[in-house]
Simulated scan of single mutants.
Amino acid sequence: MAVFTPVSESDAQKLLTDYALGELVSLRGITAGIENTNYFLTTTEGEYVLTLFEVLTREQLPFYIELMHHLATHGVPVPEPQTLNDGTRLTTLHGKPCAIVSRLSGGYEPDPSAAHCALAGHTLARAHLAGRSFSISQPNLRGLSWWQENIPKVIPFLSGSQTELITQVLQEQTAFADSDTYRALPFGPAHCDLFRDNVLFDGTFEMPRMGGIIDFYFAGCDTWLFDVAVSVNDWCIERNTGVFQHDKLQAWLEAYASVRPFTDEEKLAWPVLLQAAALRFWVSRLYDFYLPRPAQTLKPHDPRHFERILRARRNTPAPAL
């Protein structure tokens, strides 16, 4: 969501002629994030988000755009991709594929309560079940094969103990992905990046209401348990240590399971998938920190955060599902 590609008001005005979304009122760049160029786009018809895709290709994008459209039509609160005058939902700006989606109400909660965690878990489970009837398939592009490809690129920047840890965990995850337990896990479209800043809430802190899930551009078909593990590794932890806060974790998991109960295989796989989720973001943050792409406004995250979480998952027994 960093601004890699500048978009002027005249650019936006011209783009809007391909939609029935009214006239431009304002355009403001969004500086958070590390993957795409995003702008808040206000028109005489409403509030939207304009996204230019800096990494994903035009061939890959229909999965993300149509998944959001599918979930929205099934009542899941997600940004609705807007349809162009020609009936499509994807176009091009400055040589980059781009889309306009509805802007959801609310804001993200940086210090979520157990109530926020329950709402997030409940909504993710609804999204997983709604995704069962989605017809397009695309792998999680930041899954095991991506870890295998990119860990060798970041190892030169690591200490000996870090190298030992990241290599060991990769070997364990590679072996587990070839197991019968892994192959039995429920699988389908998954968000794969459901951090607290990708969920919006209305209401008050004491009585929050779900605004919606945003930023599906890391989504892919993966085990739903991996999606859960990614989420609780961010929502339900003590920030400085990565250790779980059990009231939040219990609220998150119980709310999810009330919609989609966990299977026996998922209960067996849970400790391994919690480590997989921590590894995925340690690797990507190492890559973005040491091998960044140029951007006008880019704030790389500290990769040590997910190293701490990974060590915590290995050193402390995983709470049961």
Rank of each mutant, 00 (worst) to 15 (best):
A318D: 00
P271V: 07
L129D: 08
A255D: 02
H69G: 13
T92H: 12
A277K: 13
S159N: 14
F53V: 04
F289K: 01
K248H: 09
H122C: 06
A318P: 01
F4I: 05
A127C: 11
F4A: 11
R58E: 15
P62W: 12
G220D: 11
F216K: 08
D180P: 04
F195H: 07
Q162A: 14
Y39I: 08
L170A: 11
L194N: 10
R126V: 00
E266T: 02
D227H: 07
W147Q: 06
E35Y: 05
M207D: 15
N140M: 12
G211H: 07
Y287H: 08
F4W: 02
P152T: 03
N233H: 08
N38W: 04
L67D: 07
S145H: 08
V154Q: 01
H301N: 13
T297H: 14
P261C: 05
A318C: 02
S159E: 07
S161N: 07
L225W: 01
V55M: 04
I214A: 02
L84N: 00
W147G: 04
E59C: 01
D234V: 02
F205C: 09
L185E: 01
I34G: 02
F176E: 00
I100W: 11
P6F: 00
R313P: 00
D302L: 10
A318Y: 01
A276Y: 10
L321N: 00
P303W: 04
L321C: 10
G203I: 15
R285S: 11
V199I: 15
L253Q: 07
Y48M: 10
A175E: 14
V78N: 09
A320L: 07
H128T: 02
A120H: 09
I100L: 14
L298T: 01
F306N: 15
A127K: 02
T167D: 06
E9I: 09
G203C: 11
H74N: 10
Q173V: 05
D86T: 01
L90N: 03
L50F: 13
I136N: 08
G46R: 01
N36S: 07
D222E: 13
F205M: 09
L274G: 01
G212C: 10
C98I: 09
S159V: 01
Q60H: 14
Q13S: 06
E149F: 03
L200Y: 15
A99R: 05
E47N: 15
L15R: 03
H116S: 12
Y256E: 03
Y48L: 07
R28H: 13
Q296W: 04
D264A: 06
P271S: 12
P300Q: 10
Y217C: 03
R183D: 09
D222N: 13
F4C: 00
E149Q: 13
V228R: 06
V230M: 13
E238C: 12
L274R: 07
A125H: 04
T316I: 13
H116V: 06
E80H: 12
P292K: 14
V199Y: 04
E238T: 09
D18R: 11
N315K: 05
F281H: 04
N140S: 07
A32F: 05
A120G: 01
P186Y: 03
D11N: 08
S159T: 15
